[in-house]
């Protein structure tokens, strides 16, 4: 097992949710939350999944953990005991793998049961995975709390007694409790104040170094991904539009959507005021995605081909490993393309 071997391989993963209408709940359409994603997560890396709300990043995170089952496609886990196709396992078969894949949720206020003490919430996974005696569990929970810079005694208190940042740290402790190899962080710092956010980010990085973890970091905040991630996948309407080394994304942005997304972020640096590319309109509905390239109705460089032909994720030359992007126009200099004059 080399450090850069893929720990997870996603092949053509699709998650479609049926839309039911009327008294008889007839299925009238499908929300294509994730629409054909190919992705390798390498052992020991931090992979950022970024995109706007509704682009399918959370659903993809849940599909990795089999919390929602993929409608089509495979998720393959490879560990010391060879490769296992998680998508073909039933619940009992998954039990063994749940231990290795964990999640930290966005909202620290709703992801802890208010009726349980912290110990109650944290001991559950331990009990299911074979820590039989209560004394042992108390010791492990105490150690976990210390690992996330909290006091041992906090375990007998209830979630409402803690601040948002502390609760998020408890959520991280819970994900760590059964020593997973991969943690999906779903907007783990988005609900926190900036001064607390920095504490949690530093904690996540320390834990990664100590325990040799792999993170899939789902967020909409591109400043955080730049700081934290090794590779970044930009999603739009259920598809990955750009996937590359984190530094490369900022230095050499290829896809027009990533360019617009990056330019839209307010930068806390007065010397770096750049011109904003303001996208017109909203993200289209994933029930009825546009034909061809999903981004074409909002794209500045759109040509006829974009409206009919779905662009493949193609590989481009880059100094930093591979750089993938899904756009027809990248071979040509973008400035020469006709600019769109009217909005839809």
């Amino acid at each position: 097992m080399q450090p850069n071997d893929p720990i997870l391989k996603l092949r053509d993963v699709q998650v479609h949710f049926p839309v039911k209408t009327g008294v008889f709940k007839r299925v009238t359409g499908h929300v294509r939350a994730v629409d054909g994603v190919d992705l390798d997560v390498r052992r020991g890396e931090v992979l950022g999944l970024v995109g706007e709300s509704g682009c399918g990043k959370t659903t993809l995170g849940k599909a990795i953990l089999q919390l929602v089952r993929a409608t089509q496609g495979t998720v393959t886990y490879s560990g010391e005991d060879g490769e296992t196709e998680l998508t073909s396992l039933d619940d009992a078969g998954l039990f063994r793998f749940r231990k290795r894949l964990q999640i930290v949720f966005q909202d620290p206020h709703s992801s802890l049961n208010p009726a349980f003490t912290i110990f109650g919430s944290l001991e559950d996974p331990l009990r299911h995975y074979g820590v039989k005696t209560r004394e042992e569990r108390r010791k492990i929970v105490g150690d976990l709390l210390e690992a996330v810079n909290m006091r041992r005694e906090s375990m007998d208190r209830y979630p409402h007694e803690f601040s948002g940042g502390q609760r998020q740290r408890i959520g991280i402790a819970r994900a760590l409790s059964i020593e997973p190899e991969l943690i999906v962080c779903d907007e783990a710092v988005s609900a926190l104040d900036v001064s607390i956010q920095a504490q949690v980010l530093q904690l996540l990085m320390e834990l990664k170094r100590e325990k040799n973890l792999t993170y899939v970091f789902i967020t909409h905040d591109l400043s955080v991904t730049e700081y934290l991630c090794d590779r970044i996948a930009v999603m739009y309407l259920g598809k990955i539009v750009e996937l590359c080394d984190a530094e490369d994304l900022y230095a050499n942005t290829l896809h027009p959507y990533s360019q617009a997304l990056l330019s839209a972020i307010p930068v806390a640096d007065l010397d770096k005021k750049s011109r904003r590319i303001v996208l017109q309109g909203d993200v289209p509905s994933p029930v009825n995605p546009p034909s061809g390239c999903p981004f074409h109705p909002r794209c500045r460089y759109v040509v006829d081909r974009c409206k009919t032909e779905v662009p493949e994720l193609r590989r481009f030359k880059s100094a930093k490993g591979e750089h993938m992007a899904a756009c027809h126009l990248i071979d040509q200099p973008l400035a020469e393309q006709p600019l769109r004059t009217e909005s839809p």
Partner: peptide, 25 residues
Amino acid sequence: RALLESIPVLGRGKDQEIKAIPGQT
């Protein structure tokens, strides 16, 4: 100063140092 040092700034890359403010409000 602490607030400005605690946020990652876009375009400063992976090596930027962020300093958390200890404690809480």
